[in-house]
């Protein structure tokens, strides 16, 4: 039969061909729109100020220079202090590490207790917690400031870490509770029959199974806490201002001519941590958004 082998591929109609072209054109144009700011920041950060004054924000640097990056990192000024962004970077790390560890640990314990144990009133508490995560921070901020001032920790590292733990709790608890609800309850029952108690089951059985969700939690908390501006501004105090706040100060408080190349290098530097987390984590990042479904 001659025609038997000829029909290997369905011929595309004109309509289908144009459809494909349209799809790629749409996606391509929008991809350019999304990439534009990043591109502008990168090329500008490698230019000299003379070149920036010339205009042409989209052109590639004629003389490639990393001076702006060095300046942004080591000697950019906030007001009178010219210490560079590295101070803010250090502060952000100091805030980030304990906040992430404690908020995830607490979230795991809460989620575990909520999904496997019978605690009267726990679901009401959880409901309040979730509701709280929808309320703008502005409602809580002032009383918290007063509370920290009373206890003498206002403007210290402990204050900002504690604040991140408080405001990270709804998402973390929800994340772990939903994950644990998907685990077979027989596992828990079998461990109970074997005589294991609350902590024993948590440490020996539940925690080892929590690795995937813990990764998601780390991704979510690292990006959220690193990107935080408001809480750092209010609670961290002068000594511990996180990178985002310092960045805004560098960019928006300078007098005289603005050093756009330094500012843009500083902006890219500030985005580097969450951007790296995002690029490395790939699908996990999306999973975080989808399973958390509430963001503080």
């Amino acid at each position: 039969m001659p025609q038997a082998k000829s029909a290997t591929k369905r011929p595309l109609t004109y309509q289908e061909v144009w459809g494909r072209v349209g799809i790629y054109a749409f996606l391509g144009v929008l991809a350019l729109f999304f990439l534009l700011p990043l591109y502008v920041m990168l090329v500008t950060s490698f230019k000299s100020m003379d070149e920036i004054r010339l205009g042409l924000i989209f052109s590639l640097p004629q003389q490639f220079s990393i001076d702006a990056w060095i300046k942004a990192w080591t000697s950019a000024c906030t007001g009178l202090e010219c210490t560079g962004l590295r101070v803010g970077f250090g502060n952000s790390v100091k805030i980030l590490v304990p906040s992430v560890i404690f908020s995830i640990l607490l979230g795991a314990i809460n989620g575990y207790a909520l999904s496997f144990w019978k605690v009267k009133g726990a679901n009401v508490l959880f409901a309040c917690l979730l509701l709280g995560s929808f309320v703008p921070y502005q409602v809580f901020i002032y009383p918290l400031v007063r509370f920290y001032a009373q206890t003498g920790i206002y403007g210290s590292l402990s204050a900002i870490v504690l604040t991140h733990i408080i405001f990270g709790m709804p998402v973390m608890t929800l994340l772990f509770r939903n994950y644990y609800s998907g685990l077979p309850v027989e596992l828990f029952k079998a461990a109970r029959i074997d005589g294991a108690g609350f902590w024993r089951i948590f440490i020996s059985i539940i925690l080892p199974m929590s690795v995937p969700i813990a990764i998601v939690a780390v991704i979510m908390q690292v990006t959220a806490i690193w990107n935080d501006f408001l809480l750092g501004l209010v609670f961290a105090g002068r000594e511990n201002l996180p990178m985002t706040v310092q960045l805004n100060n560098i960019v928006n408080t300078t007098t005289g001519e603005r050093a756009y190349n330094v500012n843009m290098a500083a902006t890219v530097l500030t985005s580097l941590v969450p951007l790296t987390v995002y690029l490395v984590s790939g699908r996990w990042f999306v999973r975080g958004i989808a399973s958390g479904a509430v963001k503080g």
Binding site: M1, Q3, A4, K5, A7, T8, K9, R10
Partner: peptide, 10 residues
Amino acid sequence: GGLADVSGGR
């Protein structure tokens, strides 16, 4: 049903 493309035959 026409839901899978064939690679040969009729």
